[in-house]
Amino acid sequence: MYVAVKGGERAILNSYRLLDEYRRGDPAVPELSLAQIREQMPLAVSRVMAEGSLHDPHLAALAIKQAAGDLIEAIFLLRAYRTTLPRFGYTVPLDTGTMQLRRRISSTYKDVPGGQVLGPTYDYTQRLLDFSLEAERVADPLPPAEVPLAAAMPRVTELLEREALIEPDLPAAGDPAPRDLTREPLTLPAERATRLQNLARADEGFLLSMGYSTQRGYGNSHPFAAEIRYGSAEVELFVEELGFAVTVGEIELTECQMVSQFSGNAEAGPRFTRGYGLVFGYGERKAMSMALADRAMRAEELGEAADAPANDVEFMLYHSDNVEASGFTQHLKLPHYVDFQANLELLRRLRAEREAAAPAPAAAAPQPAATQEETLA
């Protein structure tokens, strides 16, 4: 049964104050500003924007600060705020081929047209703690690039398309408008556009784990990173009164094109298949994991065995959302007094019935007296 608790509201208000105190830490230490979080924790900001489904570095930084660095809580905060925003319209589809690139690599072609652009990456660091950062040093400015990057670099997959060595990347039949999972619940079966939207805001850790599983044999996938791009792209909105699209802003994106395994049938010869990932901000690991998951969930439509966890569309889509998973897990902290008492009473009754039905233990048979020789032994 529920037990009346006095002072519950006061306890909750005190909890708020304790949380503020815990989040602030030692008052003698200068407080973090949103500008510091935004500029010096860009990867955390990128993840919160991507999984919060809202590209706004300032608000993402605010959410991180409010959540005391708990990124899943920050994602929850940003998603909740997003639901309060009005929608003015839909932008023109982004053309990632015209991105202003800061990083662009391919593991399939060494001399890729446009060149390999390493950009900012941890790939070549030694993963040793850099104690010089304790001194809060100022980084030396980089020299200007000797060769400016091309305004537009061709996608690596376009090279394969010219020889018909990769499946075509075509819109779905009838080109239906994609569903908006931020306003509509997920339903199955889900077309690829909906699946990709779900994966774009899915938990990075979950996708990383599932993508890793496909490479270890649970999905029979042998991918190549055809191309990974990071940079900024213009966002355009078509204005009916003007009759053309106008640029309304610029967003940072990370895109990953995976190519995997041969596929073919009587109509089409053997060719590579695709996996695709696109996320807000700088998030290569998330974009790569998304591409691996996308390819794994296409197993059935490509005529492959779909018996691995990553091939199960329902499992992947319904369990990849960290906000929903966190809420369902943490609801166990809420009062379950009635449920527990019901289970407790049932358990006591079953044990009592079992003990009552158990036969009485038989009397032990008398043992013969030991002989003198046995006693001495």
Rank of each mutant, 00 (worst) to 15 (best):
A150E: 12
P309N: 03
R82W: 03
A151K: 14
A152M: 10
P366C: 00
D56M: 06
T98W: 01
Y90T: 15
L199G: 05
G115L: 05
T187S: 11
E51F: 00
S106P: 02
K286S: 14
F131E: 08
L118K: 03
F340S: 12
V156N: 05
A35H: 04
A68S: 12
L43T: 07
L19M: 14
P168H: 07
R23N: 11
F224L: 14
D180H: 06
H58N: 07
A35Q: 12
P270E: 15
G219A: 11
G97R: 11
T96Q: 02
I105C: 06
P141G: 06
P361L: 15
R201C: 11
Q341S: 05
A226T: 00
L346V: 04
S221Y: 04
L376A: 13
R201N: 13
A139Y: 02
P141V: 02
A28R: 13
M1H: 02
L317P: 00
L317K: 01
E304H: 09
R274T: 08
V338K: 06
L62E: 09
L346Q: 10
T247M: 02
A139E: 08
A352E: 13
V3W: 07
P154A: 08
D339L: 09
P86T: 06
A306S: 12
I105G: 04
H55W: 00
L334I: 09
I37F: 04
L196D: 00
Y109K: 12
M290A: 12
D95L: 00
G275D: 10
D339A: 13
D307Q: 10
R10I: 14
Y16Q: 15
L332R: 09
A200E: 08
L62Y: 05
V138A: 15
R179Q: 04
P171D: 10
A4R: 15
L207Y: 09
R103Q: 08
V246I: 15
T273G: 11
T187K: 10
S320T: 02
P335R: 12
A200V: 05
T96H: 06
G219H: 11
L292D: 09
V147G: 00
P361M: 07
R10N: 08
T182K: 11
L344D: 01
M99V: 03
P309F: 01
A172K: 10
F315A: 08
F340A: 11
L237P: 01
G264K: 02
M153T: 13
A190Y: 07
A305K: 10
N198F: 08
K6F: 13
G281M: 09
G269F: 05
S15C: 14
E353N: 13
E284G: 09
E373T: 03
E252R: 01
L253A: 01
A145D: 07
Q197S: 13
P223L: 14
S209Y: 08
K286P: 02
T121M: 05
A365I: 05
E353T: 01
Q341F: 01
L253W: 02
M41E: 13
L186D: 09
E204L: 15
V3P: 00
I251N: 04
V5S: 13
R274S: 14
H336C: 10
F244C: 11
L62D: 02
I12G: 14
L32W: 08
L181I: 14
A370D: 06
V156Y: 07
L188R: 06
G277E: 15
V138H: 14
E9G: 07
L170N: 13
S33P: 00
P176I: 11
T121N: 08
K65P: 01
P335M: 11
A226N: 02
A74K: 03
C256F: 08
G114A: 05
P176M: 09
